[in-house]
Design a binder for these strands. Structure first.
Lengths: 128, 128
DNA sequence: TTTCTATTTAAGTGTTTGCTTAAATACATT
DNA sequence: AATGTATTTAAGCAAACACTTAAATAGAAA
């Protein structure tokens, strides 16, 4: 009578329930890491923010005003992107006069560098 | 009279116009690359899709039905994520009977592996 | 103190995202 | 031919995004 390997939502004749359980366990043990990595990738997965991170790494520090000029967009638009990056702990600020300089947070240098290094993978981006 | 270095939107006393122009040129020359990399990061920057990519790499191939079971979400929800990945050329499909197996597209293996390797960067994710 | 300047915050808006449920496809299997 | 199974597509919807313009802050400079 019980012909199918019924797992959850899906009824399928040739499901490999061992494989599915193994994968589920594996994911569960890494859940936290997936959420955190996805957050970082999501922040970097916007052309404006990716450019901001690239520029901050390249130039060491820049103020919202500079970024606005370089990127050709309004200061509030830039500021809102910076806020997201700062809330995530990816960038940090330093005040000098009435200028606020943004830079990549020390602890995030490695992952941001690694993300930006993806830029240089040969043949990595199909459409390129 | 012209006291400021007026660049674009921003009027600021101590703007370094050389730096700003250099950065602008640099960005312009890499514009295409930024857009494409941001696209990939944006796709990977979702916990569900990041898990899907991880699973496809780990298990070589999986069908929407398996993924639905493993991820604990409906088949249409999974299918829509797979469509995005396929439209971007990141995954490919192979038919076997009435099952459709998804796997990471050969040309995208490297960048996807590199993205997933970010998972293993020690101290890379501040909150971790 | 008053005025500027750099930045942030707020409010409004159109677009995109990611799910839901229901329906449609496309084939295998009987 | 009729039924069943795996998958995709469609429609609807609440939430998140990314910008805009205007206003609010904070602090330097005059």
């Amino acid at each position: 009578m019980l012909k199918y390997e019924v797992m959850n939502t899906c009824i399928r004749v040739f499901a490999d329930s061992d494989q599915i359980n193994r994968c589920r366990e594996d994911l569960k043990s890494k859940e936290e890491g997936f959420l955190e990595l996805a957050d970082v990738l999501n922040l970097a997965g916007n052309a404006v923010r990716l450019k901001i991170l690239y520029l901050l790494k390249q130039e060491n520090e820049l103020c919202p005003c500079d970024l606005s000029d370089i990127l050709g967009m309004t200061v509030p638009a830039v500021s809102q992107h910076l806020k997201k990056l700062k809330d995530a702990g990816i960038v940090t600020t330093k005040k000098s006069g009435q200028t606020i300089f943004y830079s990549v947070e020390a602890q995030s240098q490695r992952i941001i560098s690694s993300v930006l290094d993806l830029f240089n993978l040969p043949n990595s981006i199909p459409a390129l």
